[in-house]
Design a binder for these strands. Structure first.
Length: 474
RNA sequence: GUCCCCAUCGUCUAGCCCGGCCUAGGACAUCGCCCUUUCAAGGCGGUAACGCGGGUUCGAAUCCCACUGGGGACGCCA
């Protein structure tokens, strides 16, 4: 395959029978990257020829997922159900040329024969009983249409990832290209569309590798040039089985809801089956620049949620707080920390987020940890209260409260001076004072540096919370 | 059953194409230490892999062949 490709054209062709899942997203991503890396076009095509299982809701869901992942397409979305006339003309042509034929076996008969064959250890492939006869016997225009597959010789699939793969033609089935209801089937329309849309590289999951020889014969029968192929290894669940609903979150939007950043998911996905030396974290532009199938792996990968979580935490750390402000808002609403439409000072929220960025692995965690900054009142964790809000700390808190009350500048540096004066006077470690204050301020024992917390919560609320803590001790 | 693909730490992977630089590197997770006002983050270190067997070769993780294991396909699904 050494012909010159002027313009790379690739497509992502999901069927709208479910949400955009992790595997599909990875396929879409690799297509997108290949297009962008080569300055080509990325086309979105909806494969909805199975009208009984496809829904408009899923089309919307897939588009929503693509948008969230920032995988923008240049053409489409095209729907195959809009193109039935085109397929019909190609099918008629193949039948007229004797390259396809009518089959009058019923679905039930076929199912039964397949079953028997499998039980007797024979190949379940179609026995070809309508291949040479019976066509004239029935009224024209009925039955399904089968493609006449060559039965001798072999086909070579030249794959950018798997290399050269040979298939014996006698293994290939005379597949149905049009159902008896007149609708065309996948293996046929995929070829017609890829030809029609001038697709130069077919990049898809390797569960399609076995379909490729059949499709190549259809290209040949139609007299078209065969594109390049790249079959991506599958992504498996932790039980090494193909990813399915059983494995929990498989829809990419579920990851959004769990507080993942789409850039982090993309970064995680690209490293499944692709590597660039030892590099783990890639900016989007960097990815586009480095991407190539030369560094693509051949073996299937198992989803590792811990690593995705780590990547997400890395992305949260390096994302500017001003951006995080927007990302985190919906989660603040969900957590009941703010009400829908409630406005917070963006600068202030940004500062608060800055103190929490390196502690949150997800946006959900980030939102939750923002609670004690935003809420009027805090609740004490019982253990923390018992350990730090007691007789021992009472006087210290009183003293601190009095000193802080005199402060006009409630900055990090000023409050730190106050703490220092008290700890030196009593000859105690900072922790002896900081921990009780932390419980008073946040309700718990974990938080950013105590002076940062004070500064963000502000003088008024700080004094109130110290008062409340002192009262709680009694 | 038949066909196809795949095979390096628990997981993602580098190395493999063009054998020697590999006493196999990185990352996640895990364990320990350091830093420290808590929690993180960060730093340092540890545990941990070439599936098995044959070849080829002076020499194999790297090339070849079997085997085993895993995955996929065999639909009037895509």
């Amino acid at each position: 395959m050494s012909r010159r490709i002027l313009m790379v054209r690739v497509r992502f062709a999901p069927s709208p029978t479910g949400h955009l899942h992790i595997g599909g997203a990875r396929t879409a991503l690799f297509n997108w990257l290949y297009a962008r890396n080569n300055g080509g076009k990325f086309i979105l095509r909806i494969e909805d020829t199975d009208t009984t299982r496809s829904t408009d809701e899923y089309i919307e869901a897939i588009i929503e997922g693509m948008k969230w992942l920032n995988l923008d397409w240049d053409e489409g979305p095209f729907r195959q159900t809009d193109r039935f006339d085109i397929y019909r003309s190609y099918i008629d042509r193949l039948v007229d040329e004797g390259k396809a034929y009518r089959c009058y076996c019923t679905a039930e008969e076929l199912e039964q024969r397949r079953h028997e064959a499998l039980e007797q250890g024979r190949s379940p492939k179609y026995d070809g009983r309508c291949r040479e006869s019976g066509q004239e016997a029935r009224s024209k225009g009925q039955g399904a249409v089968r493609f006449r597959m060559p039965q001798e010789g072999q086909v070579i699939v030249n794959d950018m990832i798997k290399g050269s793969v040979a298939f014996d033609n006698n293994q290939l089935d005379d597949l149905i290209i049009m159902r008896s209801d007149g609708t065309p089937t996948y293996n046929f329309v995929v070829v017609v569309d890829d030809v029609d849309m001038k697709i130069t590289h077919v990049i898809r999951g390797d569960d399609h590798l076995n379909n490729t020889p059949k499709q190549i014969h259809i290209y040949k029968a139609l007299g078209y040039e065969i594109p390049e192929f790249a079959h991506l290894p599958m992504i498996l669940g932790s039980d090494k089985a193909r990813l399915s609903k059983r494995h929990g979150a498989t829809s990419v939007m579920a990851y959004k809801d769990m507080g993942y950043l789409s850039d982090a998911l993309v970064n995680y996905l690209v490293r499944l089956g692709w590597a660039y030396g030892d590099q783990e974290i890639f900016a989007r532009e960097e990815l586009v620049k480095c991407f190539s199938f030369e560094n693509a792996g051949k073996s299937s990968a198992i989803l590792n949620p811990e690593k995705l979580l780590w990547l997400n935490s890395q992305y949260i750390m390096k994302t500017p707080a001003e951006e995080l402000v927007e990302f985190v808002k919906p989660f603040l609403v969900i957590e009941g920390i703010i009400s829908e439409g409630q406005d917070l000072d963006r600068i202030w929220l940004g500062k608060a987020i800055t103190t929490l960025q390196e502690r949150a692995k997800t946006l959900v965690e980030l939102a939750k940890s923002l609670r004690y900054y935003i809420a009027e009142d805090i609740e004490y964790d019982e253990k923390a209260k018992a350990k730090f809000l007691n007789e021992k700390s009472r006087d210290l808190l009183v003293e601190l409260q009095n000193s802080l009350a005199t402060l006009s500048d409630f900055s990090h540096t000023e409050t730190e001076k106050v703490f220092k004066a008290i700890t030196e006077k009593h000859n105690i470690k900072l922790g002896n004072l900081a921990q009780p204050v932390r419980v008073a301020m946040t309700g718990g024992t974990e938080s950013p540096g105590i002076f940062e917390v004070l500064e963000i919560v502000g003088k008024e609320k700080t004094i109130k919370r110290l008062e409340k803590a002192i009262e709680a001790i009694g």
